[in-house]
Design a protein around this nucleic acid. Structure first.
Length: 643
RNA sequence: GCUCAUGUAGCUCAGUCGGUAGAGCGCGUCCUUGGUAAGGACGAGGUCAUCGGUUCAAUCCCGAUCAUGAGCUCCA
């Protein structure tokens, strides 16, 4: 029998008979690998473990440790889900069922939505199918046969999918027991390989994500290669629920939303207002330090201005209806940029004046469909930490570097350590969608790339993610639970300077078009604070805590001293209050813990005598007595360091 | 906007197979003066989301509306 040469990821080579299967290679390498391999990458292509290899190849065995392995594993679980549903609901029509981050889903066309009880039954059925350890068999068919097969099976969605596959594409089917699905694969060799599975929820979803299409019923689930990991994951979901900013926002009295006022409109309570004020003050200070000027602009403007800016054309869907004032129509602003441009145009600008960096905490209003509103994260009125930089083309890269540096500084200051940087560029196949010439785009992309390179920041390119007016750097931050959040964005804009025909006088005495950078480092105060609440699980670091220290007298004969201590702390710039209620210290402590007050200062006879406070920290617990002076010093240091 | 679910005291939730409701927490008063996560007693709080319909009678059944939640799509 002919031999072929298999190269392994570590570079070593081994001989195998022609037609060897990846599973056999795994078995020849180690028992562990034979057990853990889920699929294989042959010359970079992901294939089934039992797919024979016909020639020399680079083979890598894929396990659950890799994202590809997890995807294969969960994709197979999705098939098991589909099979279980077909067993229990034979009239259900199959559509699609991919693996997604942390799990999988499968969409079915059924008459009635699935109930939680249905999910339990389906999950039980899935476990049976796993028990049965059914092998998954791959077969390749012609498109005609595939279409005929699914027509006969009464699966119209599968027929539609098969018909749309490009000419010449290999069409594969995966079969387990009586269940057949149109699928590119690869898959696990058998259903018994699935160790731990859990169905999470059911919800409606449109066929192909288009609301004009029929609504299908989607079942979400997840699968892991051990019960322990599954439980850990479910635990993480619980933890996320515990940190939900809507829940904590209410518990900590940070904000509210009122049916009487309208959905998506935020009311900042004193505690939330305090946190926001602290963030805004810090923000202003940092911007001043970095050469920004702070501006304010109105909330409404004439419709004509929005026509000039292009918003009336491009963005009308998100804007509220015009209001007539003295027979002229006005619109509530969804963005601040046109206003900053008007200010730019208020006088002649010289190349010597540039760059102009104008920042505004600008409150804007955007229409969002009722179904997408979500606590502080998706609202209809919000305050952006907006800024526009007007600069010369030769200053562009330097300015972008400045913004990236500021963005990084801000993220660090708020305890975000991990982030991914994306370069959002045009969709190369659809360049007509974008305003501006090829040269301008290339220059702008060059400037963005140049800035990232100069700062040594690795990034990924996201094609088709650019705004219509220019490319952007989008930063995704990761919170304490490893979840991604939209962070700072830096966009180059060539469209608005053109539309408003703004210019500066160059060295040559001629008018030149400035470049505009549109950027935000926090996003909006609403979304940012919502994210912070979840990131810190409500326990804001000392510098952001609305109440930094609460003094707790043990009996009322200690009140006078307690009040004096609090007064002294306040004089030192600390936010301190006294709990003079007729309650035991235990109770006062419990309450302060629940409110996540960083420092509890217990004072009784001993403290009054010695001029001390007994410090308890919300996380580290009882720290013992210290002089008031000493506590002030420590707290101020902690605030300074923003930890 | 669409699909489904939910809406009962400030909060979290019971409950009534149709006869106008209850707990815990919180709040108030009193007792208690207690050293690192809940001391005790008493009390006040609800047009059961809103509007209609069926019924002798609706918080409960039906319909509409509004809001919230899980998704679909989009973004700060």
């Amino acid at each position: 029998m002919a031999q072929i040469q298999i190269t392994l990821p570590d570079g070593s080579r081994r001989e195998y008979p022609k037609g060897v299967k990846p599973s056999e290679i795994a078995a020849s390498l180690s028992q562990k690998l034979a057990k853990n391999a889920l699929a294989a990458k042959v010359d970079g292509r992901l294939v089934d473990l039992n797919r024979p290899i016909d020639g020399d190849a680079l083979v890598e065995l894929v396990t659950f440790d890799s994202p590809e392995g997890q995807a294969v594993y969960r994709h197979t679980t999705a098939h098991v889900l589909a099979q279980a549903v077909k067993r229990l609901f034979p009239e259900a029509r199959l559509t699609i069922g991919p693996a997604i981050e942390d799990g999988f889903y499968y969409d079915f066309d059924v008459e009635k939505p699935f109930t939680p009880e249905d999910l339990e039954r389906i999950e039980a059925e899935m476990k049976k199918l796993i028990q049965e350890n059914l092998p998954l068999e791959r077969s390749e068919v012609s498109r005609k046969d595939a279409v005929a097969l699914f027509k006969k099976a009464g699966e119209p969605y599968k027929v539609e999918l098969a018909e749309e596959l490009p000419e010449g594409e290999t069409i594969s089917l995966y079969r387990q027991d009586g269940f057949v699905d149109l699928c590119a694969g690869p898959h696990l060799p058998s259903t018994g390989r699935i160790k731990a599975v859990k169905l999470l929820s059911a919800a409606g979803a449109y066929w192909r994500g288009d609301e004009h299409n029929r609504m299908l019923q989607r079942i979400y689930g997840t699968a892991f290669d051990s019960q322990k990991d599954l439980e850990e994951h479910l635990h993480k979901l619980e933890e996320a629920k515990r940190r939900d900013h809507r829940r904590l926002g209410k518990e900590l009295d940070i904000f509210s939303i009122h049916e009487d006022a309208g959905p998506g409109l935020i009311f900042w309570h004193p505690k939330g207002g305090h946190v926001r004020e602290l963030i805004e003050n810090f923000w202003r200070e940092e911007h001043r330090k970095r050469g920004y000027d702070i501006v304010y602009s109105p909330h409404i403007a004439k419709v004509d201005l929005w026509k000039t800016s292009g918003h009336w054309g491009w963005y009308r869907e998100n804007m509220y209806s015009p209001m007539p004032i003295d027979e002229v129509e006005y619109l509530l602003k969804p963005m601040n940029c046109p206003f900053h441009i008007l200010m730019f145009k208020s006088q002649m600008r010289s190349y010597r004046d540039l760059p102009l960096r104008w920042a505004e905490l600008g409150t804007v209003y955007r229409y969002e469909r009722s179904g997408v509103l979500h606590g502080l994260l998706r609202v209809r009125g919000f305050t952006q930490d907006d800024a526009h930089i007007f600069c010369r083309p030769d200053q562009l890269q330097q300015e972008i570097m400045g913004v990236v540096d500021l963005a990084r500084f801000m993220m660090k200051s708020f305890g975000y350590k991990d982030y991914d940087v994306k370069l959002s560029v045009r969709d190369p196949n659809n360049k007509e969608k974008y305003a501006g010439s090829e040269e301008v785009w290339q220059a702008a992309e060059g400037a963005l790339v140049g800035a990232l390179t100069a700062l040594g920041i690795p990034y990924e390119v996201d094609e088709g993610e650019a705004k219509f007016y220019g490319p952007a750097i989008d930063i995704k931050v990761k919170d304490a639970l490893g979840r991604g959040w939209q962070g700072p964005t830096i966009q180059c804009d060539f469209n608005l300077p053109e539309r408003f025909d703004i210019s500066y006088v160059g060295e040559d005495g001629a008018p030149h078009r400035p470049v505009m950078i549109h950027r935000t480092v926090l996003g909006s105060m609403e979304r940012f604070v919502g994210g912070l609440i979840e990131h810190y699980a409500g326990a804001f670091p000392l510098w952001l805590s609305p109440v930094q220290a609460r003094v707790m007298p043990i009996t009322d004969r200690h009140h006078e001293y307690a009040l004096r201590v609090a007064e002294e702390l306040r004089a030192a710039g600390l936010r301190a209050e006294v709990d003079t209620r007729n309650e035991k210290v235990n109770y006062k402590i419990r309450q302060a813990q629940v409110e996540k007050v960083p420092y509890m200062l217990v004072v009784g006879d001993k403290e009054v005598e010695a001029g001390t406070v007994s410090v308890r920290h919300r996380e580290t617990g009882d720290l013992g007595p210290v002089k008031v002076e000493e506590f002030k010093h420590r707290a101020r240091k902690e605030i300074e360091e923003k930890v």
